[in-house]
Simulated scan of single mutants.
Amino acid sequence: MPDEIQERAGVPVLVCDPAGPIVATEQDALDLIGAAFAGAQVVAVPANRLDERFFSLGTRFAGDVMQKFVNYRLRLAIVGDISTHLDGSSALRALVHESNQAGHIWFVPDLDALDERLRATA
């Protein structure tokens, strides 16, 4: 399935294909933002599409990507199991916790959990 905009819980979401290209650069993130401008308010990126550097906070890649979405006023949902990354990094656990308390960046286990978050913020 290609990346496509779907209505989820009444919100247009760019749901990215798990088999799509890896988000490895800031330009890759900007490309997703550009695709979302076709009408999406949220971009749902499977965790497996994020370069490993995203989960290693010392690289600052996660912060750079997340800031791009905030700057363009788009919500970003990282969808999937990131428990192996969380097990190895208290800083990442803290980032995920703080992000999930706010409204712009969410880490969710699956699209059903994203739907629940979207309904809760409607």
Rank of each mutant, 00 (worst) to 15 (best):
H104M: 15
S56R: 12
V15F: 11
A47T: 00
G80L: 01
F69S: 02
L30C: 01
D64K: 12
G20R: 10
D28C: 06
L14P: 03
E26I: 09
R93S: 15
G34H: 12
A24W: 00
Q101W: 04
P109W: 07
A47H: 03
I105R: 05
G10P: 11
D51G: 01
L57S: 08
G103C: 05
A47K: 01
I33Y: 00
D17M: 10
S56E: 12
P109T: 08
L76A: 03
G58E: 07
I5K: 05
I105Q: 07
L32Y: 04
D3V: 07
V96Q: 14
P46Q: 04
G80R: 01
I22P: 02
E52G: 00
G39K: 02
M1S: 14
G10W: 07
P18A: 01
Q101D: 13
E116D: 15
D115C: 11
M1A: 14
V42H: 03
M66L: 09
I33G: 00
E116S: 14
E98K: 09
G88H: 13
P2H: 11
L57V: 08
P21S: 12
V108L: 04
Y72D: 02
A91Q: 14
N71Y: 08
H97L: 14
S99A: 15
A29P: 03
F54H: 09
I33A: 04
R49N: 06
G10M: 09
S89V: 10
V13Y: 08
A77V: 08
L30T: 00
G88N: 13
F54I: 03
R60P: 00
